[in-house]
């Protein structure tokens, strides 16, 4: 059996957890989170086996790299959920993990041999820091979207639910989309679904993600120069990484110095995330040669 086929197990469990929201009428959270945690444990086991296969050198195929990225993202999501007791984070952010798993399945799985000469701990640090930074910004992006959505509802004063009618026994609707909507409301009405916490979590993502990204980029530049023996040539990945870094640096500065928060901060977070997507695209698919994979 090809190793990447195992990626389907957590993928199926994540999808199943959403099916629970569709079908289950009462107390959906327990079942939902059970499937999510089960999937994460299996994903952790797969990533451990996968990295062990390459002796934890991080010189791993792209598919496993994306799989690792999904795992880090899920780890951060679960940590935030436990730390801030905000159940809705899992429900809104897991689709990105599912997307990551799908991409990892279709990504090339050829072994990389070109950068074997690089010091392994620096490469591990570079990859882990960049992936952690990216994952934190991904979560910040999701949180920003929720923030903008929720703020819009508050400003327009439309579809604001203040009473949870999910326990209303008189409801005759049986299952399906009604359950899904009701269950989403259940999460949205739970603790922590408020603008202040969303903004605060966004800020935490920035505070943790920015140093990780900065360190990751610095190590990356060092590795790049060591690998190609030329500091002078500027590659597109470096330009995009620098622009991304600038956006987040500006955002962090504005937040610390001027107290920027709310809508504008969320929009900047989204802009930063788009730059990350571009950087990832450049790194892996569009111009792999610029990252030194070829």
């Amino acid at each position: 059996m090809i190793f990447k086929n195992y990626y389907f197990i957590p993928l199926a469990l994540y999808v199943l957890s959403y099916a629970v929201l569709y079908f289950k009428k009462d107390n959906p959270y327990k079942s939902f989170i059970f499937f999510i945690y089960s999937a994460f444990i299996i994903q952790s086991a797969i990533i451990f086996i996968g990295l062990d296969k390459y002796h934890f050198t991080m010189i791993i195929p792209i598919d496993l790299m994306i799989f690792l990225n999904s795992w880090i993202l899920m780890l951060i999501i679960i940590l935030f959920e436990l730390l801030y007791k905000a159940k809705y984070i899992v429900i809104y952010a897991t689709p990105l993990v599912i997307a990551g798993l799908l991409i990892s399945y279709f990504a090339p799985s050829a072994d990389i041999t070109a950068i074997l000469r690089v010091d392994s701990w620096l490469l591990i640090a570079h990859i882990v820091l960049i992936l952690a930074g990216d994952s934190l910004f991904t979560l910040a992006f999701i949180l920003s979207l929720i923030y903008i959505f929720q703020e819009r509802k508050l400003k327009l004063k439309k579809n604001l639910k203040i009473v949870n009618n999910s326990n209303n026994k008189s409801s005759n609707t049986k299952a399906g989309l009604f359950n899904l909507r009701k269950n989403f409301n259940y999460f949205n009405l739970g603790n922590g679904y408020n603008l202040e916490l969303l903004d605060n979590m966004n800020y935490q993502c920035l505070k943790l993600g920015f140093p990780a990204l900065t360190a990751g980029i610095v190590i990356g530049i060092y590795l790049s120069s060591a690998l190609f023996k030329s500091m002078s040539s500027v590659k597109p990945i470096e330009i995009i990484s620098f622009i991304t870094w600038l956006i987040y640096a500006f955002l962090l500065h504005e937040r610390v110095a001027k107290g920027l928060r709310g809508n504008k901060a969320a929009l900047l977070s989204i802009a930063g995330f788009i730059m990350i997507l571009l950087a990832v695209g450049f790194s892996f698919y569009l111009f792999p040669e610029f990252h030194g994979f070829k």
């Binding site: 604001l160 203040i162 679904y193 408020n194 603008l195 916490l197 605060n200």
Partner: peptide, 20 residues
């Protein structure tokens, strides 16, 4: 019986803006 009043709604709306 159901605790829905202007004051209740105001508090619930405040909870949508503030965390604590």
């Amino acid at each position: 019986a159901a605790p829905v009043s202007i004051s209740y709604a105001a508090v619930e709306l405040a909870k949508k803006i503030f965390n604590d």
